[in-house]
Lab assay of single mutants.
Amino acid sequence: DLSALRVEEVQNVINAMQKILECPICLELIKEPVSTKCDHIFCKFCMLKLLNQKKGPSQCPLCKNDITKRSLQESTRFSQLVEELLKIICAFQLDTGLEYANSYNFAKKENNSPEHLKDEVSIIQSMGYRNRAKRLLQSEPENPSLQETSLSVQLSNLGTVRTLRTKQRIQPQRTSVYIELGSDSSEDTVNKATYCSVGDQELLQITPQGTRDEISLDSAKKAACEFSETDVTNTEHHQPSNNDLNTTEKRAAERHPEKYQGSSVSNLHVEPCGTNTHASSLQHENSSLLLTKDRMNVEKAEF
């Protein structure tokens, strides 16, 4: 173990290094160091905050020279020094078990990766560091076993998940096959086929009936047209017969005018059967003409 005197000496050296690497504005270890034209180094955030307070150039807090945003430059070497100082402080805390008085939040800088452990060898070769390295080497064999167990647990979990997924996939297939086998029997399929065939026959029977009705309507229309044509021909046949009657009536009127007047009046009210309204109107006109002729003949006879 380190003596108290040596611990104090190391602590004083760390404090001196820390004062050199402090920012003059925030009085902390410089984060993202930036250098000016006057070779003074500050935190990048502190300098941008200072420049944004005034429009135009501002003055350096140490030498009062003008500073602009374009004049600022990043210093990589200074950032490396800060990183190495942080590593020294971490090693000091691990070796002594004491917390550094002016320690900052170094938890963000710590890294437990194997590459980081290899890099620590180049920091300080001390008894405390050696003991700590031995402890780490002793704890390393235990870690692979834990990793193997965790991997086995994960693989077993994956296997159970896969088996569950396969079961879920197989179950719908089985149910679907069961439904297909038990849903419709052979008799049901035959009945469905016969039902479809009967429906098709009914459709075939319905369509000819409609065509037959249309044919019957067409035949009825044709018969009505033929009947009207026969009526017209009958009226045409009746007209010459009426003319013959008129000639006979004229002759009778010349011989017996008194008797014919009474008979002509009675004939006005008689309509021949089986004739249309057109034929009756023609008869009325003929009878009126005959009456006028008879009157003329009677007057001539009187004179």
Rank of each mutant, 00 (worst) to 15 (best):
P257S: 02
E22V: 03
S281Q: 10
Q125H: 11
Q53S: 06
R174D: 11
S280I: 04
L27G: 09
F78I: 08
K300C: 12
R132F: 01
E202T: 12
S75N: 12
E120L: 15
N243W: 15
I67W: 06
S228G: 03
F45H: 09
G128T: 12
G262F: 01
L62G: 07
H284R: 15
E28S: 08
P272K: 08
C46K: 15
A16P: 15
S152N: 13
N286F: 00
E140M: 13
F78H: 10
E249L: 02
Q154P: 12
L48D: 13
Q261E: 13
N105E: 13
T230I: 01
Q80Y: 09
E22T: 01
E8N: 06
R162Q: 06
L27V: 10
V265L: 06
L204S: 12
Q73V: 06
I30N: 09
F45W: 06
L164A: 08
I41T: 01
C60T: 15
S266N: 05
R251Q: 02
R132V: 15
S75A: 04
S35L: 10
T160M: 12
K192T: 14
C43P: 15
T160R: 03
L164S: 10
C196L: 01
P208C: 05
S58E: 14
L155P: 13
V232Y: 10
L29R: 06
H40D: 07
T248W: 14
L51I: 09
A107T: 06
F78Q: 13
D231A: 12
S3A: 10
T160N: 10
I30R: 10
E120R: 05
E258R: 04
Q125N: 06
R70L: 10
N234Y: 00
L217V: 08
I20Q: 09
R165V: 14
K49M: 00
L164R: 09
T68V: 02
H116M: 04
L291E: 12
Q73G: 05
N242F: 03
H40C: 10
A4K: 15
F92H: 09
E202Y: 00
P114L: 09
K44A: 10
Q80T: 14
E84L: 14
V232K: 13
M296G: 09
P114A: 09
V265K: 08
S145M: 02
R70T: 08
R165M: 08
P24R: 00
C60P: 15
F42P: 15
K250G: 12
P24F: 00
P33G: 07
D188R: 14
K222T: 01
I89D: 04
A223N: 13
E142V: 09
E140K: 11
Q201G: 14
L94H: 15
P24V: 14
V270L: 02
M296H: 06
G97C: 10
C26A: 15
S280D: 03
T207G: 12
N246M: 11
T68Y: 06
R174K: 10
M47I: 05
K259H: 01
T211D: 03
N102I: 11
K55S: 07
E254A: 01
D213G: 14
S3M: 14
Q138Y: 05
L5S: 10
L117D: 01
K31E: 13
S113V: 11
I14A: 12
K293G: 08
P57F: 03
L282C: 07
K55C: 04
C38R: 15
E249V: 03
R251C: 08
S145G: 05
D213P: 14
Q53H: 07
E84G: 11
I124N: 03
E271L: 02
L50G: 10
E148P: 06
L27A: 06
K19T: 02
Q11V: 12
I88M: 04
L50S: 04
E258A: 11
P208E: 15
K118D: 09
I14V: 08
E83P: 08
Q53W: 07
V161M: 10
F45D: 10
R212E: 14
M47C: 15
M47G: 10
N15K: 11
V7K: 07
E110S: 10
S281P: 07
E142A: 09
K55G: 03
T163K: 11
N52Q: 03
S152R: 09
L94P: 15
E142I: 05
N243P: 07
E226I: 02
V161F: 03
S186I: 03
Y195M: 01
S266V: 07
Q205S: 06
I14H: 15
Y100H: 04
E84R: 08
N112T: 09
E214K: 15
R295K: 09
L203W: 00
L5Y: 06
F42E: 13
S71T: 12
T248H: 03
Q18F: 13
R165D: 03
H237P: 04
K108V: 05
L164D: 08
C46W: 15
P144V: 06
L137E: 04
T230Q: 14
T233N: 05
K259E: 11
F45I: 07
Q59S: 02
L164Y: 08
T163G: 09
S185Y: 03
A223Y: 01
E32G: 10
R162C: 00
Q53E: 04
K55Q: 11
Q147R: 06
L48T: 11
S264I: 03
S150W: 00
L217G: 13
R132D: 01
P57N: 02
Q93L: 13
N105G: 09
V121I: 03
M127C: 12
C273E: 13
K49A: 03
R162N: 13
S219V: 13
L203M: 04
I89K: 03
T96W: 00
K118R: 04
Q11F: 10
E142D: 10
